[in-house]
Write a protein that binds this DNA or RNA. Structure first.
Length: 191
DNA sequence: CTCTGGATTAGCT
DNA sequence: GCTAATCCAGAGC
């Protein structure tokens, strides 16, 4: 398993979103290792009306304008966290929202964190995934190249056929085809 | 300062 | 299908 470096993330947001499918996302703490295979992503690029970065840099969205390969974690709907991976060169906004993963390791801890026992309900949504992994503001702006969360590639693994479609839960740029998921994977949030 | 609505989810009808 | 939960960023005054 090879850990992905900054060069992977320092590219067009859309390209990174598509290529993240089939990669492993692993979080290591002192007491546990949680890992999942990324099966659903969404791209939010610089000149995108649906992106938090659209109207310019603010304290909240600043990580999106920062270094590629860092995390952008934000709080929404008064109760949920969403986890993004920053893309594009330093100074240019862009991020990929991780919407769903297929649980690989640490499944018992995910069940505990989610208070659910059905494995299909653990990580099939952006806020379900962060809850299962225990991701909160602590991880905002974290370096994913060297930090506790990393993205890993297992070369032999093929992600399968990729579906490209419109994003979920936004009110502008509804028809932009910026969502990507692995066809027929049962852990995708919405078919 | 006040107000609006959100890159969601769970639970009910 | 509908909506409460529950906080806060961003916009407008």
């Amino acid at each position: 398993m090879k850990r992905l470096g900054a060069a992977f993330f320092d590219r067009r947001t859309e390209t990174v979103a598509k290529e993240l499918l089939g990669k492993y996302l692993t979080l290591r703490t002192k007491t546990a290792t949680l890992s999942g295979l990324i099966v659903e992503t969404e791209a939010y690029h610089e000149n995108d009306p649906a992106s938090h970065s659209y109207k310019g840099k603010t304290p909240r969205n600043a990580p999106m304008f920062g270094k590629p390969g860092h995390a952008y974690v934000y709080f929404t709907y008064g109760m949920h966290w969403c986890f993004n991976i920053v893309t594009e060169k330093d100074g240019t906004a862009g991020a990929v929202l991780i919407r769903a993963v297929e649980p690989v390791s640490g499944i018992e801890l995910m069940k505990k964190n989610r208070k659910k026992k059905d494995v299909y309900q653990l990580t099939n949504g952006p806020a379900k995934f962060t809850q299962a992994f225990g991701i909160t503001e602590k991880y905002n702006n974290m370096d994913l190249i060297n930090g506790a969360i990393g993205i890993y590639d297992e070369r032999q693994r093929m992600p399968g056929s990729i579906v490209r479609t419109n994003r979920i839960g936004i009110s502008v740029a509804k028809d932009d085809l910026m969502r990507f998921y692995v066809r027929d994977n049962p852990f995708v949030s919405v078919k």
